[in-house]
Nucleic acid binder design. Sequence first.
DNA 1: CTTCTGCATTTTAAATACAAAATCAAGCAT
DNA 2: ATGCTTGATTTTGTATTTAAAATGCAGAAG
Lengths: 243, 243
Amino acid sequence: MSGADEYSSKRAAADAVRSRTRGGLSEEVAGYVRQLILTGALLPGERIDQEAISADLDVSRSPIREAIVMLGKEGLVDVKPRRGAAVANLSPEDIVDHYELFGLVAGRAAAMAAKNLPPSDVAELRAIHQQFAKPATTGTGVSDGLPDYAALNDRFHFIINSVAPRRTKWLLGHLVKSVPSNYYEFAEGWNQRSVDHHERILTAIESGDADAARSAMEDHLHESGIAAAEALRAQGFWQPLVD
Amino acid sequence: MSGADEYSSKRAAADAVRSRTRGGLSEEVAGYVRQLILTGALLPGERIDQEAISADLDVSRSPIREAIVMLGKEGLVDVKPRRGAAVANLSPEDIVDHYELFGLVAGRAAAMAAKNLPPSDVAELRAIHQQFAKPATTGTGVSDGLPDYAALNDRFHFIINSVAPRRTKWLLGHLVKSVPSNYYEFAEGWNQRSVDHHERILTAIESGDADAARSAMEDHLHESGIAAAEALRAQGFWQPLVD
DNA sequence: CTTCTGCATTTTAAATACAAAATCAAGCAT
DNA sequence: ATGCTTGATTTTGTATTTAAAATGCAGAAG
């Protein structure tokens, strides 16, 4: 009984899942569980109760099962035949390692961008970066007209990756999915550091220096990894599970 | 009706699948379909008929469905909601790109091996390489006591990867799975080239030169990618599908 | 008191059944 | 003759049911 409560606390989100267009339910369920894991609602080692998810999302177990297979391939859960799935025991070292790999691939894309990105895209990159570098007016007011940093960051990287070959893009998509991306709120002064990183990357691309672009991107993601691990720690991701 | 014949020609393999221990049927099915794709029995763009596989393997559609999800995550099939799955349209460029990425990650592992591989492992590496370098006595006789090159190759790389961090090993496992690994028989004189590559990698590791090990591994996999694409071509992988 | 064995319970895995969407074809209209 | 619409067929996606494996507990034996 204690297991079901774990999930049902998120019933609000559940309805959002159900409301989606028919077909591709497994994808939705995967997103739901992924979020549960990445936000620390499900701790490493904790069993994934198919029954509970089924009850919580009001979905049969077939799409849940497929979602678990997906998450297994993403490395977020361990799937043992005949004994179900559990949240993967990712260590801080795993997270750092993951981002290091991420950096390798993103570095490759950045190097290619330095050589092949069309001038118009480079210009847009600079424009976006200017928005990104705009200091957040410290007022906590909501609709302050202050930039949506996450969106700008996404677009920045999206443009850089746009000239990478297909398979490289594909792998980047996978690497970005199975890892937290909300460390903006946690790491102290992350925004400023991020701006510095982007500036270095952008400068390298503008001057067509592939090696510099690669290292800049690798360094950026190396530090992002440390920030991500810290964010997970702050969320209680590595809290010992009490039983 | 024409679709089912496509599969039933492989019924021998099908029985082998069924014979396995219970639990984890999806994994077996995935292996079966993966082989069908990698050997060119299913051509790029061709639909994956769940019913046909079900009939051919005498397995219900549930594990087949999960297998398709796996292959989707591996990038071997495209899964479109409500319109089924089809063999991914991998181009030669995709294969080369894939191996380039493979090289990036394996290069990272090799660099680490150059610094951290225990001397005993380095010694075993050398011993394996000596077996590997042994010229295949040109007699086509079967039980000639001539080395199993594929196994030696696997072990060679396995030892190198053994000191890589967990996530890196995990990614390597994924990258190696969704790509042909039988180009030994196709590329002319591949064995000799492979020996040369391994020699260069091994020398770098023995002398503790991380950068040299990395480049050697990257180059090795770059050439492997070209050979793999060639092997696929030779297998008729890119034959226009006739409809 | 401890440990091993066997039964009951729980939960997974696979098979089957059902519903909905998409494709294909034939007929009709233009 | 061509194009569109409508109906039948096929095939997918989801739910439900059934079977088997693992876990936990209880009782008996040492």
